[in-house]
Write a protein that binds this DNA or RNA. Structure first.
Lengths: 244, 244
DNA sequence: ATAATAGTGTCTTTCAGACAATATCGC
DNA sequence: GCGATATTGTCTGAAAGACACTATTAT
């Protein structure tokens, strides 16, 4: 909950609106799969407005430091997670007179996918005000500003892309088995995929390369694959059907 | 060509950058089919910067008048074409330190589709500084700022959507025949579509409703259809293949 | 041998492409 | 009837779904 009297006072002293120009910033939904769940990173706001509420990471464009919008997004990502090489995609922009009490504001929303090995690194940092929030719980948490809507927009984009593209490989480490890849797709979809169909799709598309190595575990070892063209996002000729 | 000395002076007197906040605006690619060609509306810039060059219609957000980004886009659309009910879709945002000589700037790009009957209305207005530019000729025209890139982004979105959605119905008047609809798709694709496949796709999808009327011309009359759910954009289960 | 996971064979289903055939109009 | 456009019939093909089957490991 925000302290109202305090916030009122803060807003009265906030003067950027005098210039009749909208505030412009970048916000991002950083996704990762942790504990077999799709989760999104949220930050507790340290300052007004919405002080104390959870929010998507983001902030103002630094016109002296950032070359472009993607640079602002990368800077924010680095600040929050320590990671700087990730899949990053612009999703949509939201702007209105009312979405931020400081005045007319625009935010450019990005989506980032963090691979699980990046998370290992990140978990060891001191993260007082950060929290991974399972996407299924987002609706139950009060988010700052219109971040609920921004999150929905990013989540929807991700859900869409699982159905027709290879995007989710970016949530896995460098090398992975087909079963791990399928599990990743299934976690995002929140639905099962037929094993044979999945393997056919992925292998026939030629986006993966066998590394020659095997992942050994309790049972039959599995071939390890890696992405062939890093950064490129393959689109399959047809979409997956949703079961159920 | 722009007058350089003049523009330099203009820029030196431009002071908004002092506030260390990016300029934020909206630009749009307004598409329509005119003379059996897909065309995009461009405006001759009356002011610096890029004075005298063609540009996509657009402008600054009016924080006192516009409720949100879509309102800015609608206002600009209305100013340039006199039309206010059209298909409007946000495409992407472009922001960098260098895209506008006035300083760090962000533009939110929209795409609008004008139906041919809207164009009739619009053609009767006085349009000194407006021009419909066939998309095939855009590359040959020097556009202001990064508008070439913005145009490409919007055009690409449109090309993509022709392949898997019913979006192009928005380029037609209220009632139309299947042949007219197919011709619209073909003009955008710049490729032929197999007649039977096209009709099956469209009719089986249930997005159209027979009006009961017929369009009579020299030959066999054609059934007239209209869109069932206005504004909604149907996605087909598979994409069209490109011939050739 | 058994449990568990990896991986394959193959039949069905869905929907787009090809292309020929038929229908309905004005003349 | 003729030319032109509208509309349909039906075969083929590509890629996804279903599901049973085999393969390889640790124990």
């Amino acid at each position: 909950m925000t302290d109202f009297a305090d916030e009122q006072e803060f807003l009265q002293n906030y003067r950027i609106h005098d210039y009749d120009v909208p505030l412009t910033m970048v916000d991002m939904a950083i996704f990762s799969i942790i504990d077999h769940q799709l989760q999104v990173l949220v930050v507790k706001r340290a300052e007004h407005p919405c002080k104390g509420l959870w929010a998507l990471p983001g902030g103002f464009i630094d016109v002296h430091q950032d070359m472009d919008l993607a640079a602002t997004a990368k800077r924010k990502l680095k600040e929050k997670t320590g990671v700087d090489t990730t899949y990053l995609e612009q999703v949509a922009s939201f702007g209105s007179a009312t979405r931020d009490p400081r005045g007319w504001s625009v935010t450019i929303a990005y989506m980032a996918l963090l691979s699980t090995d990046n998370i290992q690194f990140h978990k060891n940092q001191s993260l007082e005000q950060l929290r991974w929030l399972p996407v299924k719980q987002v609706q139950g948490v009060e988010l700052s500003f219109d971040h609920q809507m921004i999150f929905n927009s990013c989540y929807k984009r991700l859900l869409n892309k699982v159905q027709y593209s290879s995007l989710p490989v970016n949530l896995l480490p460098e090398e992975f088995t087909l079963s791990e890849l399928q599990a990743t797709f299934e976690i995002i979809l929140d639905n099962e995929i037929e094993k044979k169909s999945f393997r056919r799709r992925v292998l026939d598309s030629g986006i993966l390369q066998e590394t020659g190595k095997l992942k050994r575990g309790g049972n039959r070892p599995a071939k390890l694959y890696k992405k062939l063209e890093q950064g490129k996002d393959h689109c399959f000729p047809r979409s997956l059907e949703s079961k159920t």
